[in-house]
Amino acid sequence: MDAKGNNLPYLSFREVSYSVAGRSILDRLSFDLERGETLVLLGQSGSGKTTALRLINRMLDPTGGDVYLDGEPVRALDPIVLRRRIGYVIQDFGLLPHWTVAENVALVPRLLRWPAERQRQRVGELLQQVGLDPATFGSRRPRQLSGGQMQRVAVARALAAEPALLLFDEPFGALDPLTRREMQQQFLDLRSRYHLASVFVTHDLLEALALGTRIAVLHAGVLETIVTPQEFFSVKTPVARAFLDTLPKTTTQGACQ
């Protein structure tokens, strides 16, 4: 049950399709997601996973079916208001290069006209949480940061206005393996701390297994299967099998335990 006293899931896709110029990108995708859960959309390039993500915050609108957030169809919501309620992190960071780190993190609170003092406090709190000292990093520009630091700032920015839903589009794809690992750990901490719902796009099975509470395998715009990470190893569908075959055997055994 959510705050409104109904039994609707927090985020729900009902037979959602998207096509452009007669070409189907996404075909009747359905799934539900509760707060505290992470749905990983796993698939190759062109499988429609980024499209699915963009249908949630109305950067695209479905050509069929409906997306529901907190019981309301998102198509009935003002996209600007909707987007300010949803955190969004992309692979290329998308930090505003002419703004400082602190200004970047304060972006959505600023759009929502929070008082300056509350913005400042929130920025300090968030930079701390993603492991960046506010005094050192707050006044820097994005170009003075490493890739890992930029993505920390982007994650802090996505969390700034206390969203209940986070969307991640291959956020850690451009990072080195060690930084990536750290960021994944941080993601898990943030998820449990804020009881967040999140949709996470990746083509990395290990990442999917580490972060997902459920994994949806997309292939050519069609949902092949949707399972928990534990169930993933016994799935028989072809694309899921193909992803499993990319794992070194020892890793597969280790993760099975």
Binding site: Y88, L96, V108
Partner: peptide, 21 residues
């Protein structure tokens, strides 16, 4: 750059805000 524009849209900036900011 496209990621900067994408992020600005995704954060909920209106078109005039994207232009101005």
């Amino acid at each position: 750059s496209p990621p900067v524009r994408e992020a600005a849209i995704a954060m909920g900036m209106t078109d005039p805000q994207i232009l101005r900011l």
